[in-house]
């Protein structure tokens, strides 16, 4: 029909994210253990929605879940696979790969808990542990309040979940706790949505062989140690209902 006779430019290729929005300085000097999602305009659009303070809770949930899913998929790509040959329903053989190694998720409460659903969507029967770390009001240092892990955590790969990497204090404390449980550093994969360059460099210099999967590297921290531009308090915006054991602590 006539639709083909009208000259049109070809469809746009996947647009990259805008340079002004990417922390190119930090991206260039990334430690080798840090991996980011492909910085496309689409990912940028997802972040734009969840950064917007006017975004409704429903949209925040939906779009942050989309990012979390992508992050978990990326994290899983760092797990080992083995060659596997299967027979297809028509009797042919197919040389593929099989997943190797058991995994578990560990969420840093409370905000990390919001990422569990996304993890479960990708890894159905995944075991999940929890760590509650809060800032000690006296020493201003992160302090472990609560932890619960699968008993065989030492033999598993651990996906450590925390949406925001600001100063890196609680994340480093969480890794410390995990290593006390016998999990080797290189078997931990730390997944977060937004990281600050400061937090990343502190974290990676302390744990150089621990892989960090981050969706976006932001400009930096403000004087209150909030990530700029950031997205506010992730857990609060998802309105995670406090678990009973949190309220009975102290």
């Amino acid at each position: 029909m006539s639709t083909t006779t009208v000259p049109h430019p070809p469809p746009p290729p996947p647009q990259p994210a805008k340079d002004s929005n990417r922390n190119t300085a930090a991206m260039k000097s990334l430690p080798p253990s840090v991996f980011t999602l492909p910085q496309t305009a689409q990912l940028e659009a997802l972040y734009t929605i969840i950064r917007d303070k006017n975004t409704s809770r429903g949209d925040f949930l939906f779009y942050s879940d989309r990012i979390i899913r992508l992050l978990v998929e990326e994290g899983l790509n760092h797990l080992p696979v083995v060659d596997k040959t299967v027979e297809t329903p028509t009797g042919a053989t197919y040389h593929g790969v099989g997943f190797e190694g058991k995994i578990c998720g560990v969420s840093i409460l409370r905000a990390g808990e919001a990422m569990e659903a996304g993890l479960r969507e990708v890894c159905r029967s995944v075991r999940i542990g929890k760590i509650l770390i809060q800032r000690d009001e006296e020493t201003t240092l992160p302090k472990l309040f609560y932890s619960k892990f699968p008993p065989d955590i030492a033999s598993r790969y651990v996906l450590l979940l925390d949406p925001m990497l600001a100063t890196g204090g609680s994340a480093m404390k969480a890794v410390e706790v995990l290593m006390e449980q016998g999990v080797p550093e290189e078997r931990i994969i730390f997944i977060n949505l937004i990281a600050s360059p400061e937090g990343l460099s502190t974290f990676c210099s302390k744990y150089p062989s621990l892989k960090v999967i981050t969706g976006w590297i932001d400009q930096g921290l403000n004087e209150k140690a909030y990530i700029i531009p950031g997205l506010g308090d992730f857990g609060e915006r998802r309105q995670v209902v406090p678990q009973p054991f949190i309220s009975c602590k102290h």
Partner: peptide
């Protein structure tokens, strides 16, 4: 505008 009060140009 993010909840931190910073304007951010996204897509």
């Amino acid at each position: 505008t993010t909840p931190v009060g910073v304007d951010c140009t996204g897509t």
